[in-house]
Amino acid sequence: GSLMYASIFGNVSAIIQRLYSGTARYHTQMLRVREFIRFHQIPNPLRQRLEEYFQHAWSYTNGIDMNAVLKGFPECLQADICLHLNRSLLQHCKPFRGATKGCLRALAMKFKTTHAPPGDTLVHAGDLLTALYFISRGSIEILRGDVVVAILGKNDIFGEPLNLYARPGKSNGDVRALTYCDLHKIHRDDLLEVLDMYPEFSDHFWSSLEITFNLRDTNMIPGSPGSTELEGGFSRQRKRKLSFRRRTDKDTEQPGEVSALGPGRAGAGPSSRGRPGGPWGESPSSGPSSPESSEDEGPGRSSSPLRLVPFSSPRPPGEPPGGEPLMEDCEKSSDTCNPLSGAFSGVSNIFSFWGDSRGRQYQELPRCPAPTPSLLNIPLSSPGRRPRGDVESRLDALQRQLNRLETRLSADMATVLQLLQRQMTLVPPAYSAVTTPGPGPTSTSPLLPVSPLPTLTLDSLSQVSQFMACEELPPGAPELPQEGPTRRLSLPGQLGALTSQPLHRHGSDPGS
């Protein structure tokens, strides 16, 4: 009898404990919600809404976190579960008819179910419309201010047509639940991603989709105040780019002037030289400038040598048109050559190039014969006009050509200096018209024969001689050997007369 009593008592207590286990969990969670309300000092109306929603959600799901349970299964099984949970929507909604099984599984994985109690606001006026909503159960109302403009029910759709707008718009009203509602919502990016994977279904979906109420604000059109608020930074940046392009296009129409201050000032006329910023005076940081632009901040801005204009002085008759350009485009679109090309026009420029290279940067340069637009006047290309890779490749080509020119210049200078040193070592320090008596009659020769300089066969020296023939050397430049009979510069000019005159010897006659 005691054994029977113990078994009955144990079973009854276990049954009672299981009955009250759900209630215990409910009270535990309710205590957490109330502690949250007390800690954050939530006001009474919002506090009442929180408690009511918790009670309804507990009775609806029995305190089970559906998302946590669903995430515990593998992905393939999750797709089947989501397809079952959203079967009513996918079967009865017209846009989803005719979709393949794979497309429906992908869509079912992207849908999220939302449960809303009465009085809950789903979308506020001015919120971004980031999702498309399908009503599965219940009814909602749409308000503009305090005026109800629409009441939607089961199988209705609200949001915005995503295929017509590249960016999400703003809501033009509040969406509030009238009863307990079940909503299926899919985010904008998720829907577009699935439709991109199934393009054959995309056309059918957009053609058959009928949005019951379009929440997009109709005033959000390009150029409206609301649109400016939504895309303020983007609009200002776009206007700045367009104004920069218009100014650079105007600059290219004036090829007669070359400016070292950047493309923003290349198009300024002579009357605007004294102004601080020219056409860019209202925004000094709008356009890029070269490193020399920092010198323009000092006094005497109108007389600054940074602004270059072609000189009108005539060229000498024998002067060549100019050196070879550094870039391939210089032959086609440049009416002034790079300062480095002028360094190779003569030997005198070679000796004085490194010492006063900055001073020569603004000297007169030889002109190319074609009066085409200036290379320095070409505006900086924006990322939309020329690819970045093209600019980098041009810079690399320019750097390689500069290296080759520097190597060639160093070799030419070394060769010229070597020839000058050899000339100085071969010439005796001094010569006299009267020579010392020699031991015999073989001493009648006034000077030792001097062998002429070897013929220069280097390509670089031939180019130097060509430049010497075309360029007029300055007075202080050293002379180079030329073709024809060679003669030492330090010898007297009348050596031929010395050989014809008898030598005057000093000596005593033994017979006297």
Results as ranks from 00 to 15, higher is better:
residue 417 L to N: 01
residue 416 V to Y: 05
residue 176 R to S: 03
residue 473 L to C: 11
residue 273 R to A: 10
residue 382 S to K: 05
residue 497 A to W: 14
residue 205 F to C: 02
residue 200 E to T: 06
residue 238 R to A: 11
residue 350 I to A: 06
residue 148 V to E: 03
residue 407 T to G: 07
residue 379 P to E: 09
residue 359 G to C: 11
residue 135 I to R: 02
residue 252 T to V: 10
residue 407 T to I: 08
residue 351 F to G: 10
residue 462 S to Y: 09
residue 402 L to R: 03
residue 268 A to F: 14
residue 260 A to E: 14
residue 203 D to P: 07
residue 265 R to I: 11
residue 413 M to A: 04
residue 186 I to Q: 01
residue 255 P to C: 12
residue 311 F to S: 09
residue 422 R to V: 09
residue 436 T to Q: 09
residue 416 V to D: 08
residue 251 D to T: 10
residue 172 N to I: 13
residue 398 L to W: 13
residue 499 T to E: 15
residue 215 L to E: 02
residue 181 C to W: 01
residue 407 T to M: 04
residue 386 R to P: 08
residue 427 V to K: 08
residue 175 V to S: 01
residue 219 N to E: 13
residue 179 T to R: 03
residue 503 L to R: 09
residue 245 R to T: 09
residue 148 V to G: 03
residue 200 E to V: 03
residue 365 L to D: 05
residue 209 L to G: 02
residue 401 Q to D: 05
residue 174 D to F: 04
residue 268 A to I: 08
residue 286 S to G: 14
residue 144 R to Y: 07
residue 228 T to C: 08
residue 302 S to F: 13
residue 284 P to E: 13
residue 362 Y to A: 10
residue 431 Y to L: 09
residue 353 F to D: 13
residue 334 S to F: 03
residue 481 P to S: 07
residue 386 R to C: 13
residue 438 G to T: 05
residue 353 F to G: 10
residue 196 D to H: 14
residue 332 K to H: 10
residue 350 I to Y: 14
residue 281 G to V: 13
residue 436 T to W: 08
residue 166 A to C: 12
residue 299 P to C: 09
residue 268 A to W: 08
residue 229 E to D: 07
residue 286 S to D: 15
residue 232 G to V: 10
residue 139 S to V: 07
residue 268 A to S: 10
residue 344 F to V: 06
residue 448 L to Y: 14
residue 449 P to T: 09
residue 430 A to S: 10
residue 272 S to K: 04
residue 310 P to K: 08
residue 298 G to F: 04
residue 503 L to G: 09
residue 327 M to H: 13
residue 241 K to I: 13
residue 333 S to M: 09
residue 302 S to M: 11
residue 394 R to G: 09
residue 175 V to H: 01
residue 207 S to L: 07
residue 437 P to H: 07
residue 237 Q to Y: 09
residue 279 P to Q: 04
residue 375 L to A: 12
residue 446 P to N: 14
residue 500 S to C: 11
residue 137 R to G: 10
residue 139 S to C: 10
residue 231 E to L: 08
residue 246 R to F: 08
residue 172 N to Q: 09
residue 509 D to P: 12
residue 374 S to T: 01
residue 324 E to F: 10
residue 478 P to Q: 06
residue 425 T to N: 10
residue 283 S to N: 12
residue 135 I to T: 01
residue 139 S to T: 10
residue 203 D to M: 13
residue 184 H to N: 09
residue 141 E to T: 11
residue 298 G to Q: 04
residue 203 D to L: 12
residue 166 A to Y: 09
residue 198 Y to H: 11
residue 311 F to E: 07
residue 482 Q to A: 10
residue 143 L to I: 11
residue 230 L to D: 13
residue 391 V to S: 03
residue 407 T to F: 03
residue 415 T to G: 07
residue 467 F to P: 06
residue 137 R to C: 10
residue 179 T to N: 08
residue 236 R to E: 11
residue 314 P to K: 04
residue 215 L to S: 01
residue 461 L to M: 09
residue 147 V to M: 12
residue 153 G to K: 08
residue 126 G to Y: 01
residue 288 P to F: 04
residue 297 E to M: 04
residue 212 T to D: 05
residue 370 A to W: 09
residue 130 T to F: 14
residue 477 A to M: 15
residue 225 P to C: 04
residue 456 L to C: 09
residue 250 K to G: 09
residue 213 F to E: 03
residue 481 P to D: 10
residue 238 R to K: 10
residue 259 S to C: 10
residue 340 L to I: 14
residue 289 S to R: 12
residue 367 R to M: 10
residue 430 A to G: 09
residue 350 I to R: 10
residue 228 T to I: 07
residue 186 I to K: 01
residue 350 I to C: 08
residue 491 L to V: 09
residue 439 P to C: 15
residue 346 G to M: 06
residue 383 P to G: 04
residue 167 R to N: 14
residue 158 F to I: 09
residue 506 H to M: 09
residue 226 G to H: 10
residue 405 L to C: 05
residue 247 R to P: 08
residue 311 F to H: 04
residue 348 S to G: 10
residue 186 I to H: 01
residue 442 T to C: 12
residue 312 S to A: 13
residue 355 G to P: 09
residue 187 H to K: 09
